[in-house]
């Protein structure tokens, strides 16, 4: 984690996150009446626990829990040399993709490039009947024609801001923060002055 954030603001607390996830689960269940044909792929790392929670919530509503898998996308990125070569997790799921309705789940939707990579990876496993996307946060800044079918909240963020989702499974708490960093020009100027 970067520790040079100039400041940070909490934009979503645990309770609001539960509300969003419950509503998303309802919407997903409504849009997918045949729950057994639905499979969920959480994008590592934080999309995966969100997918598991959504699956549990859907089970509470319909009595059926969609199967959940993890997808890494690291081997399909277009900026491969800037992403870690040795990711902690890699793609794993046990179900068939062919003919299923695949729901990709991620924490933050930004440029849309991760989702593009995830879709390419899904197609290497089979031919899904359709692909949908669920994201907790849409922070804007899209570079590809991609949008979320199921969204928690739109939180527009600037170029020098980083939207960070913290989840109790990985971080011990549920929270969304916006962290602000000094702009690069300002950093350069600061370095020159120093």
């Amino acid at each position: 984690m970067r520790d040079d954030a100039a400041d940070q603001t909490i934009v979503m607390q645990s309770e609001a996150m539960q509300v969003h996830l419950r509503r998303m689960a309802r919407e997903i269940a409504k849009a997918n009446p045949d729950i057994d044909s639905l499979v969920m792929l959480g994008i590592l790392r934080r999309g995966f626990p969100i997918a598991e929670r959504l699956s549990k919530l859907i089970e509470g509503m319909t009595g059926r829990a969609p199967e959940v898998g993890a997808i890494a996308t690291t081997l399909y990125r277009d900026d491969i040399s800037r992403s870690p070569a040795s990711p902690k997790g890699y793609t794993h799921f046990d179900f068939e993709i062919d003919g299923r309705s695949v729901l990709l789940v991620d924490d933050v939707l930004a440029k849309g490039r991760t989702i593009r990579a995830a879709m390419d990876e899904v197609f290497d496993y089979g031919r899904p009947a359709r692909i949908q996307l669920a994201c907790l946060i849409d922070r804007g800044g899209r570079e590809l024609p991609i949008r979320a079918d199921f969204l928690g909240e739109k939180i527009p963020a600037g170029d020098n801001e980083w939207v960070r989702v913290r989840l109790r499974e990985l971080d011990g708490e549920d929270m969304v923060l916006i962290e602000r960093y000094a702009r690069e020009e300002e950093e350069d100027a600061a370095e020159e002055t120093a």
Binding site: A85, S86, Y90, T91, I97, Y125, G126
Partner: peptide, 25 residues
Amino acid sequence: ETVLDTAPQFAAVAKRKSGIKKVPL
């Protein structure tokens, strides 16, 4: 160790049960 840590994701590619056992790197 970087080589050893990079390899498991490629071992997983070969073990795919369905679809294409390759990646576009």
